[in-house]
């Protein structure tokens, strides 16, 4: 499951939990797409404390979405990922 909400004028929170599937990514595109068209700077927080997994088709769809908006991601000046997984830190680094 995936939920997107604004927690401030310039901060968007994405919460991942359980297994993220292709439909979740469609929802992410719908919710986050318009925010990527804004003027920055904005902050993005990804909460993944209860995230278990992502399906292969969802992973591919998410990558396509990221690449399609590549020029717009810089609207987010800061991105925080909340997770106890050390692997997430390594990926960010």
């Amino acid at each position: 499951m995936l939920r997107v909400r604004e927690i401030g004028a310039d901060v968007v929170e994405v919460t991942l939990s359980g297994v993220v599937d292709r439909a979740d990514i469609a929802g992410l595109e719908q919710a986050l797409g318009p925010k990527l068209e804004r003027e920055g700077p904005m902050g993005l927080i990804v909460r993944a404390e209860d995230w278990a997994d992502i399906t292969a088709d969802a992973l591919a769809a998410e990558a396509r979405f990221e690449l399609s908006k590549l020029a717009r991601w810089s609207v987010f000046a800061r991105m925080a990922v909340v997770s106890d997984l050390q692997a997430i830190g390594a990926i960010l680094a």
């Binding site: 927690i7 401030g8 310039d10 901060v11 929170e13 700077p41 904005m42 902050g43 993005l44 927080i45 909460r47 404390e49 991601w73 810089s74 987010f76 000046a77 800061r78 991105m79 925080a80 990922v81 909340v82 997770s83 106890d84 997430i88 830190g89 960010l92």
Partner: peptide
């Protein structure tokens, strides 16, 4: 984009950090 990982116990700190733009 500046990126950081926070432990679950630091969730409020993460929110403060991304809000400090």
């Amino acid at each position: 984009i500046e990126m950081r990982r926070f432990d679950a116990a630091q969730a409020s700190e993460a929110e403060a950090w991304v809000s400090d733009l």
